[in-house]
Design a protein around this nucleic acid. Structure first.
Length: 749
DNA sequence: GGGCCCGCAGGG
DNA sequence: CCCTGCGGGCCC
């Protein structure tokens, strides 16, 4: 019998004795797990009990020797902290936390936070603590055995070679070890509890956004939806600057609360995602940031368009579009139609006409420019667009939009040894203007211009921002709206709402957390696969084929949770929290629970407008705002109250999806567009695509079913071989690849 | 090194 | 909702 600790309920996993007497319990000084000492193969001498480390934490008894290096150093460091008798328990916990988080202990932190005794935070705090650092989990992850940890603590644990749960010693699946998923329901609840604690910050949109954004990881991260780790399909990390996404011009110190220096010319980031986090250029793929009726804030020179021509202080830039992006592409070198001054190209033209400063970043991917950085993405300051026009591009067939950018920044360019920024310079002579059409140049005074005394500055008030100060991601915006909208609910109710089961749509009972970090009632989740064994026999023509494993996708995402379903463990911390919150909600005497449920199921309203967001359509209003906005910092306060509810998980959607039906009558459970079914690799996708394109008459029969049917949950298995790729022609049901065809509505009843 | 893939973010 | 898009990782 191997050594095993007590499980989450205090039951010894060896002798199954429930709640062994306190004297028989040994607590590991490294991982804090309780062990039943009579059941240990090598119980420590009594005298050593205080400094005892459990078998999982002591290297000498470790069955699989932990890799040398950081892991063991970590254990040693934790031991050193535990052994230090000059430290209080609290201080030990704090240092351990700091160690696990990989940072120096910060003395200030939460010391003075507990006096307000906010119930919600208290309840949450009481129910959740990371096994390792004993604090509220940061970016919580949940093991299949139902225990919660900080992501960082969990990762340190894994890095030190451990493959068992720090609490119950259950095996941690390799996949979870490799890529733990953040349990976003917990994140939300913890965040909300914190927000509720700072009522002074509640109510202002900026504050909500800031808090939410602050909770995003420092680096780009892989979401639960992405199938691969790494930045290829990663979500943005938090935004570090406080500019609105439609902010024009340099990013000043007041918008850089982290460093208070602003974004300086020459600052370089690893890639576009990191660049985005500092606000220099927000889009992660697109080269132009802007809005067609408002202007363009920034561009990236990344070598995407061969027509670009870079001379450092000035360059010729090419608009976007005119390329065939069918087949799920994001870029394409080849022009296949004329570009027009619409969308982002129109945005650039507005910046040209008004003389706005446009931030410019250069990427190492621009190989044809001497001014590109050797690596990464660099901020090179602001430019003005002096002219734009259209002309047949280098490829010789189609027109492209062209823009002349001229530098106008107060800081010297990264490639000069000047100690000063730009002076106004004469426009370069552009040969190619000959033969150009649609030539546009600025007539009036540029908004951003040179002043002999003060240098480059706004001489006309900058356009008033139409957007709330960034949030980092659309999820955030939804959260913001939701939080704002439900501000009238009690804290406990709001928290409870985060714990909705997406199957039964009410508050989760006996929560299970899947490895993909979705939470469901135990009975709901298990019930969903009721009639399904984990293997199916296949036979054809009288002979039996190899048994095939049945894929059981998570109801909320494509992840196969078959293995998890074999032995799912209730997330007890979550369950206790939910129960506490329910008690509290009852105490508060609100009888809103019923209306909550109604809201939950019925959110049919939606389609409110975003009127508040688009009111400023009138461009001429800019100047009128000038007195109030002398410093350029005023933003429209947008009423974000009324956003649409998140419809992604709503039932009863009647959109038609295509499902390929095989002999076993498969069923499609995907709720989100673009979800690839579980287990389809790239090759399969490609095959499907080709099939769609070439086998109109011969492909597998396709049956259309309604999502609403699917969501009702009748019918069984869940293997789908039909891939639905939303982006254009890859759609398996659309054999016709033509753009015209693509623009047609694809939903037919 | 070129092609493919596909989540994310933003515009409209 | 649906479309677009000067990414980044990986495979060939």
């Amino acid at each position: 019998m191997p050594d095993l600790p007590c499980d989450g309920d205090g039951v010894c996993m060896v002798c199954r004795a429930a709640s062994p007497p306190e004297v028989d319990l040994l607590r590991c000084t490294t991982c804090a797990t309780p062990w039943h000492s009579p059941c240990l193969s090598k119980p420590p001498a009594l005298a050593d009990a205080a400094s005892w480390s459990c078998p999982d934490c002591s290297p000498d008894s470790s069955p699989a020797p932990a890799p040398a290096g950081p892991g063991n150093d970590l254990v040693a460091a934790i031991r050193a902290i535990e052994a230090d008798q000059t430290l209080s328990d609290q201080e030990k916990a704090r240092r351990r936390q700091a160690l696990l988080a990989g940072s120096a202990p910060a003395a200030d932190d939460d010391e003075d936070e507990d006096d307000a005794a906010d119930d919600a935070l208290e309840i949450v705090g009481k129910n959740f603590s990371c096994v390792f650092c004993m604090k509220l989990p940061e970016r919580p992850v949940t093991t299949p055995c139902g225990h919660n940890f900080c992501l960082k603590c969990f990762q340190k644990w894994i890095q030190s070679g451990k493959r068992t749960c720090g609490k119950c010693r259950a095996q941690i699946p390799a996949k979870m070890a490799a890529q733990p998923r953040i349990n976003s329901a917990l994140v939300e609840v913890i965040r909300m509890a914190k927000i509720s604690k700072n009522p002074n910050s509640a109510g202002s949109a900026g504050a909500y956004q800031y808090i939410r954004n602050d909770d995003r990881p420092d680096k780009a991260f892989t979401t639960e939806r992405a199938k691969k780790a790494g930045k290829a399909n990663a979500s943005s990390g938090q935004i570090f600057v406080t500019i609105a996404p439609d902010h024009f011009g340099p990013i000043l110190p007041e918008n850089d609360p982290r460093r208070n220096i602003g974004v300086r010319v020459g600052e370089t980031w690893e890639d576009r995602l990191e660049c985005r986090q500092w606000g220099a250029h927000f889009p992660h793929v697109a080269g132009i940031a802007g809005q067609s009726t408002y202007g363009a804030q920034s561009v990236a020179l990344s070598g995407g368009y061969e027509d670009d021509e870079d001379h450092g202080e000035w360059f010729l830039y090419t608009g976007s579009g005119g390329r065939d992006l069918s087949g799920n592409k994001r870029t394409n070198k080849e022009q296949s139609s004329d570009q027009k001054f619409e969308k982002l190209n129109a945005a650039l033209r507005i910046s040209c006409l008004r003389g706005y400063p446009v931030r410019v970043v250069r990427s190492h991917k621009e190989k044809r420019s001497s001014y590109a950085p050797e690596s990464g993405v660099r901020y090179d300051g602001v430019y003005r667009i002096e002219k734009c026009w259209r002309k047949i591009g280098i490829q010789g067939k189609f027109k492209v939009c062209r823009y002349l950018f001229v530098r106008c920044d107060n800081e010297p360019a990264p490639w000069t040894s000047d100690d000063h920024g730009d002076r106004p310079r004469p426009l370069p002579k552009i040969k190619e203007l000959q033969g150009a059409t649609d030539i546009t140049e600025r007539k009036g005074r540029p908004s951003w211009d040179y002043d002999e005394k003060e240098g480059w500055k706004w001489v006309v008030a900058p356009p008033v921002s139409r957007k709330p100060v960034l949030s980092g991601d659309p999820e955030t915006d939804k959260q913001i709206r939701r939080v704002t909208k439900r501000a009238h609910m009690s804290v406990a109710e709001r928290l409870l709402k985060e714990f909705g089961c997406s199957i039964c749509r009410s508050v989760i009972k006996e929560p299970l957390t899947t490895p993909c970090a979705h939470n469901f009632c135990k009975t709901c989740l298990l019930g969903a696969y009721d009639s399904q064994s984990s293997m199916r026999e296949r036979s054809r023509g009288g002979r039996t084929l190899r048994a095939q494993k049945i894929v059981k996708p998570c109801p909320s995402c494509p992840t196969d949770i078959c293995d998890f379903l074999e032995n799912p463990q209730i997330n007890r911390e979550m369950m206790e929290l939910i129960e506490s919150l329910q008690r509290k909600a009852v105490e508060e005497g609100d009888n809103k629970v019923a209306s909550d449920d109604a809201d939950e199921c019925g959110d049919g309203e939606s389609e409110e407008n975003d009127a508040a967001l688009v009111k400023e359509e009138d461009d001429n209003s800019l100047n009128e705002e000038e007195e109030d906005n002398a410093d350029g910092s005023v933003k429209i306060v947008v009423d974000i109250e009324e956003g649409k509810d998140d419809k992604k998980t709503k039932m009863g959607v009647t959109e038609v999806v295509d499902v390929i039906v095989d002999e076993n009558a498969v069923k499609e459970t995907k709720k989100r567009k673009g979800d690839a079914e579980t287990g389809t690799d790239g090759a399969t996708a490609k095959r499907m695509k080709n099939m769609a394109a070439t086998e109109e008459g011969t492909r597998t029969p396709v049956k259309k079913i309604r999502k609403s049917d699917v969501d009702e949950g009748n019918g069984s298995p869940v293997v789908s071989s039909g891939r639905r790729v939303t982006r254009s022609s890859a759609n398996a049901s659309e054999a016709d690849d033509s753009p015209a065809r693509r623009t047609r509505s694809r939903a037919r009843a």
